[in-house]
Simulated scan of single mutants.
Amino acid sequence: MTRHPSARPTPAARFTSVPIPDGAEPLIRISHLTKAYRGRPALADLTLHLPAGRIVGLMGSNGSGKTTLLKILAGLLSEYDGRVRIGGHAPGPESKALVAFLPDADFLASGLKAEQAIAMFARLFPDFDADRARELVDFFGLPKDRSLKEMSKGMGEKLRVSLVMARRARVYLLDEPISGVDPAARDVILSGVLRNFDPEALMVISTHLIADVEPIVDSVVFLKDGRLLLAGDADDLRQAHGMSLDALFRKEYH
């Protein structure tokens, strides 16, 4: 799904960056980012630049720093060292207007029905497209007459995806959007995520389910113990290592 030409590194190269197209500016710039909880580093001296027009798989085992990174980019965590810019803005009100964030947790009241949730998002976000949300709700086949507490886990995740992906954002941050649902639901959710996705936007999908997202990602970032382990174009990594991203993940995290 690569959308931009990029210089191809040699097979022997150690991949530590996502390719930036010639003449393009990174949409996300992270320099020497360090974040600790009670003295324990969650992110350690992380430097990473991500361009627009890419779907990036943010991969790593539990505790590797994926959620912490996404929360910083979403403007939900502060008190870190280093420099972070989204569309030229430090995390805050201006950057939040560019970012749609799907957390790895329920963020809707359990009594809400789909149309009530759509109405709530329409009030909260100026860039929210209610018609697009309804189209995704229909695509997922979600019931209109049930509240979240009456839906399955997979249905609830599909509703949350419908809401987040209906924003006209420049950056989409999805934290484990397919975790905890069955394989069939994973495929449907990923199809919904890609449905009418703006090819000039940037999407970062955090996951440890590499095989499920491998077919849709353009670039990958591997985190381990809060540090950058590998990063690069997905095709380049497969070619250089002679294996799938899933196999490479298992090798690197063995």
Rank of each mutant, 00 (worst) to 15 (best):
A12V: 08
A12L: 13
A13I: 00
R14W: 14
R14L: 15
R14D: 10
F15G: 05
F15E: 06
T16F: 06
T16K: 10
T16Y: 13
S17H: 10
V18R: 02
V18Y: 05
V18C: 03
P19F: 00
P19W: 00
P19D: 01
I20M: 07
A24K: 02
A24C: 11
A24P: 09
E25C: 09
L27N: 06
L27W: 07
I28G: 01
I28Y: 04
R29A: 12
I30G: 02
I30T: 04
S31D: 14
S31I: 11
H32N: 07
H32I: 07
H32L: 12
L33S: 00
L33W: 07
T34I: 05
T34Q: 04
T34Y: 03
K35F: 09
K35M: 05
A36G: 02
A36H: 10
Y37N: 10
Y37K: 08
R40D: 07
P41W: 15
L43R: 06
L43V: 01
A44T: 15
A44F: 14
D45R: 04
D45T: 05
T47H: 07
L48Y: 12
L48R: 01
H49G: 05
L50G: 07
L50Y: 00
A52P: 15
A52G: 09
A52K: 00
R54E: 13
R54V: 04
